[in-house]
Design a protein around this nucleic acid. Structure first.
Length: 504
RNA sequence: GAGGGUGUAGCUCAGCUGGUAGAGCAGCGGCCUUUUAAGCCGAAGGUCCCGGGUUCGAAUCCCGGCACCCUCACCA
């Protein structure tokens, strides 16, 4: 009898009860004078003047004691207690208001309240209500979270992650601390944007729908334009378009945008995710290393007041300069072997010795990548730059100025075991770029499905001449995870991609 | 992808070696004009994730599936 449908029906009946009283349960506006935070900050002054103020929020606790009640409302800035007495709020115009409050207002309803301040005998700042307005009815039962005033210990939490991610609106109502991750995320983007603007970068927008995807190694999403009868891809990176702008003479550009990769979903990967990419003419990768340090450490300081940030069990210290280690030096530390001149067979031997399996079809670049990912990357909890990568792994990066033909000027930034930045001195020699694309074609022929496709139009743009340029990509979601101390990317993406709900 | 765990009322969970389903909160009725996890009394509320199997009998045991979580791997 008392199923979810019954609970909803009971609330609909209460909604009707307001209409029967001639009260519109969905009014058009409400004149709020204070947020909860503003009220608490000005509490002394409001109390002294016996000023009447108005608050609005969602009812999150209700304790009826006959002819008087206590309740709490929650607005965007916090929770506040309200005190309602029958003899205070019933008037000639609204003779039944207290009874409506007592029996027809439910947890979850939006209410506007009007009254004066008071302090209860336990010392809690409270609004002594003399008028109350229903602003919108909550027609579905709300999971009730109870919190002990002293200890802050919580009971009966709405904590099933699956339900939380599927019903984010409810999650944000019931678990208001989850809002903080999104505030942090917004702050990060704002800080990033301010810094780039100040440094003379121009914010631009490049196509999401692309005839040929590129700039990264990943499987794309494919779609179709009907009028043009043309297959299109959702971008996996912004890189090749942003470089065209450098060719065009926009010396410093950046874009903060969604990229889409048709790959695995786990706690650090969502198929659509937010990337910041920026390019600076006349600079090289050392410039970008400092820019990453600058952006991330400033973010830490502005959000946490310190370069030291707690992330899970670790304290991450973002004080510049970060640890820097060359790719092959990092490998050497773990394997005891300098593999910089090694051929594929020697790399395989070392892998075998370290019990790392490398599939038979892998070429040298892939083999190094697996070895590095297996043995070295897990150790990068504290902020670390790995730099000077093998050429096979980086088809868009410029050959190292003194590394012979084996290395490129590239670095990746790792924090908390995650890659958060990837940058290089950009390859701007069109014929070298063509060779690299051809090597990618060989890797693809050898079975590497993620190898890049040859983009003739991009090479044509390079042939117009691209000045020396540094480029950077930063994972905004992962930075948000670190700065908000969340271990799942789903906690910093409002509506993460989920499997279909099970039908039953 | 591999291993482990979980799935029972709107929410959080209990339910032993198989005997036919329980608590708290929310909701409903009643009492209560300074409570705060308010309290007290009363009555309700179930596709025990889904599908098979074993059994006289399955929430419980077995098999298969689905979802989520954790660890590891992969995917910059």
């Amino acid at each position: 009898m008392e199923t979810i449908h019954e609970l909803i029906k009971a609330r609909r009946d209460k909604l009707q009860a307001f209409r029967d009283e001639g009260i519109d349960p969905y009014p058009y506006n409400f004149n709020r004078t204070h947020t909860v935070q503003a009220m608490l900050e000005a509490f002394e002054e409001i109390s002294e003047k016996e000023q009447e103020i108005s608050l609005a929020g969602r009812l999150v606790a209700k304790r009826v004691m006959g002819k008087a009640s206590f309740a709490h409302i929650l607005d965007e800035t916090g929770r506040i207690q309200m005190y309602v007495r029958r003899d205070d709020i019933n008037t000639e115009e609204k003779p039944n208001l207290y009874s409506l409050f007592k029996t027809k207002i439910d947890l979850g309803d939006w209410v506007g309240i009007h009254g004066t301040t008071m302090v209860t005998k336990t010392g809690e700042k409270t609004l002594h209500v003399n008028d109350l307005t229903l602003l919108a009815k909550c027609l579905r039962p709300l999971p009730v979270v109870k919190e002990e005033a002293e200890s802050g210990e919580r009971y009966h939490e709405f904590s099933d992650p699956n339900e939380r991610y599927r019903n984010r609106a409810l999650d944000l109502v019931v678990n208001p601390e989850e809002r903080d991750a999104f505030r942090t995320r917004a702050r990060i983007i704002s800080i990033m944007r301010n810094m780039l603007d100040k440094k003379g970068f121009l914010e631009v927008e490049t196509p999401v729908l692309q005839p040929l995807y590129g700039g990264g190694t990943a499987r794309p999403f494919k779609t179709h334009h009907h009028q043009l009868k043309k297959d299109l891809y959702l971008r996996i990176a912004d890189e090749l378009y942003l470089k065209r702008l450098i060719v065009g003479g926009l010396d410093r550009v950046y874009e903060i945008s969604k990229d889409f990769r048709n790959e695995g979903v786990d706690r650090t990967h969502n198929p659509e995710f937010t990337m910041m990419e920026c390019y600076a003419a006349f600079e090289d990768y050392t410039f970008m290393m400092e820019l990453v340090e600058d952006i991330v450490s400033s973010t830490a300081r502005e959000l946490h007041g310190s370069y030291k940030v707690n992330y899970g069990k670790h304290e991450l210290d973002f004080t510049p300069p970060w640890r820097r280690v060359r790719f092959f030096d990092a490998l050497k530390e773990v394997t005891g072997e300098d593999l910089i001149d090694a051929d594929l067979q020697r790399i395989r031997d070392v892998a075998k010795e370290k019990k790392v399996t490398i599939e038979d079809k892998a070429l040298k670049g892939k083999a190094l990548d697996i070895l590095f990912g297996e043995l070295v990357e897990p150790g990068f909890t504290r902020p670390t730059f790995v730099y000077d990568y093998p050429i096979e792994l980086s088809p868009l990066a410029k050959m190292h100025r003194d590394g012979g033909s084996k290395l490129v000027e590239r670095f990746e930034g790792f924090v908390g075991g995650m890659e958060i930045a990837n940058a290089f001195t950009e390859l701007n020699d069109p014929s070298d770029q063509r060779n690299r694309f051809e090597d990618q074609a060989k890797a693809r022929a050898a079975g590497d499905e993620e190898a890049m496709a040859l983009d003739e139009e991009f090479i044509a743009a390079l042939e117009l001449g691209m000045p020396p340029t540094a480029g950077l990509g930063m994972g905004v979601d992962r930075l948000a995870m670190i700065m908000s101390n969340r271990t799942s990317i789903r906690d910093v993406i409002l509506f993460p991609l989920l499997r279909d709900r099970e039908e039953s």
